[in-house]
Design a protein around this nucleic acid. Structure first.
Lengths: 332, 332
DNA sequence: CTGTTAGCGCGTTCAC
DNA sequence: GTGAACGCGCTAACAG
């Protein structure tokens, strides 16, 4: 167990350096010697110690995707984008979680230079930590927030425009009395979506009723509660714009429980296009973010920076309306 | 940038080893010296090179979860189990994919000893590779298949009993003419589920119609096709047991398209309890595996082995029936 | 008891 | 094709 390159060299009767060259297939070695070495390696079941190799090379050929929690939520398309582009560039990809904040695996990996670059989708890693790690030459791309720092850049969907898109769609379908269920006030994305909403409302001379500005905290439970509250107030709006799909899920449950039909009695629109959206009946109309593209671009930027090319600090991608069955057209 | 421990020692005016002791908080250093060192480290924004550290210690304090594809399917509960137990034991956890087979990140990490142990849920890593890596002291736990090797153990749900459970439930509800839609023949889990099915059928003296033994390959598409075929044959069964939920999803779509109602005209049961199952209308009745427990047990075993304690080679956990709305009771 | 010296871990790479 | 330095931090043995 655990043969080292020394053992291989000894068995093959060559110097360690020669063994290394042969193993890595870098010129300088006659075919005969190479074969001897490879043979010895096979006999000893030799596997190089990747850590020693990384240490010497001072690069790991690996990039990390930092998530708040490995067990979810499910950023399938985004990860696919990250994964495909990494692999195409010959880099390895690992995912790790930031549970535990500054003492988490995620933070350890960027701080201790265990990877060559990182993509961050983990709200609980403090800006400070990220900036400390973002030394010259250590590329970091943020996906969940903005961060002004020379060697950190960020990619995001245009949530503002997405909010506008969704709201305009409701208005085009004849809705005028529209409620908005927000996520947490601290969320930039929530704020952007809300901005888009207000812009659309104002553009069409519609008024935003304060009593229809509800808080749902981006959770299914929160959406459920918000709608319960709305129902308790009486006087329902014609449509509800949930700032994310999870809240819409909860909201729809609350509506169903009250015998209010979607979309016959009230229209609903969400944001994100999570997997479940398609499986509701009727399917949830929502706004899709270009997740795959966000992921792909993020890694692409990492490689640009690694190559020493300069990149912009900020990229915005478009969102797209996904029309299913929860919004109906009202004839006025 | 990139201060090393040498710089810290120099600035603090002590030897490197002293700096190391101070930084790691291992006795042998006066408070005063310690403070000087910590101060110097702070000033230089020092971060240890984790790779050098790992090399020296020859352990990484990290375990890896090897998945076929980081972008899905979504083993949320299982990963939660793995994650929580790892963290509780003070170990870091990383996830990586085996896309690319023997040249994948996953394989690289186990071969090159970049982690202290691994949990494998990646069918495309060859047995051979796993056995080569499973040297003395390198713990590997398999979740997706059995592998007979002294230092490899496996944990699995009782798929056979799960198949029995599902089938018995259909039979208890008066169904006698039952179809079975299989996954790929190569899948052990599929085979076990099918065994449970046949056992239940035989126990009740029911016959298995060959024309109702369909192949769906564990995919939504496959389930869809299988049901289309079944419909084309005419003479529908009373119930269909899909060997996994994804196929059930596809099958239900096919039934709907043909105007066949679930469960009024035909009952459906699945296996796995994927997230979507709950969101179908009606909710999909299915068999749940104890995913969290499987994950938690897997890591637990890793730690046992790491501590040099001996463990059994094989663990089986029970499955559970999740009753929702796709099976109806037939009065004969 | 505090602090230092020296060598190790393992593979890579440069100069000869 | 080879010897030896090197990457960086850890630690046993030793000196003060």
């Amino acid at each position: 167990m655990g043969a080292t390159i020394k053992d291989v060299a000894a068995l093959a009767g060559v110097a360690v350096s020669t063994a290394s060259y042969a193993l890595n297939g870098i010129g300088r070695v006659s075919t005969k010697t190479r074969d001897k070495v490879l043979d010895a390696a096979r006999q000893l079941n030799y596997q190089k110690n990747g850590i020693a190799s990384d240490l010497k090379r001072s690069r790991t050929n690996t990039i990390a995707l930092l998530l708040s929690d490995l067990s979810g939520p499910y950023y399938s398309s985004l990860i696919k984008g990250v994964q495909e582009v990494s692999l195409n560039n010959g880099y390895d990809l690992i995912a790790c979680s930031s549970i535990g904040g500054d003492s988490s695996t995620a933070v350890k990996f960027i701080k201790e230079k265990r990877v060559d670059g990182a993509i961050i989708l983990a709200h609980n890693i403090p800006d400070r930590t990220i900036m400390d790690s973002a030394r010259e030459g250590f590329p970091i791309v943020m996906l969940d927030r903005r961060l002004e720092h020379e060697s950190v850049c960020y990619v995001e969907a245009d949530h503002d425009k997405g909010g506008l898109l969704a709201t305009n769609y409701l208005i085009e379908n004849g809705h005028r009395r529209i409620a908005f269920v927000s996520g947490p006030a601290s969320s930039k994305h929530n704020k952007d979506r809300y901005n888009g909403f207000t812009r659309a409302m104002n553009d069409h001379g519609l008024t935003i009723e304060p009593r229809w500005n509800l808080i749902g905290n981006f959770t299914e439970e929160g959406g459920y509660r918000a709608v319960k509250l709305m129902i308790a107030q009486g006087d329902l709006p014609e449509a509800v714009f949930f700032a994310n799909d999870e809240m819409a899920l909860g909201g729809i449950t609350a509506l169903q429980e009250a015998g209010i039909r979607v979309p016959e009695d009230i229209s609903v629109i969400g944001f994100d296009d999570i997997v479940q959206a398609r499986f509701l009946n009727p399917g949830l109309t929502t706004v899709r973010q270009p997740d795959y593209e966000v992921g792909a671009l993020a890694v692409h930027l990492i490689f640009q920076i690694l190559k020493g090319e300069s990149v912009a600090q900020h990229y915005t991608l478009d969102t797209e309306l996904v029309i299913r069955g929860t919004v109906r057209s009202i004839q006025n």
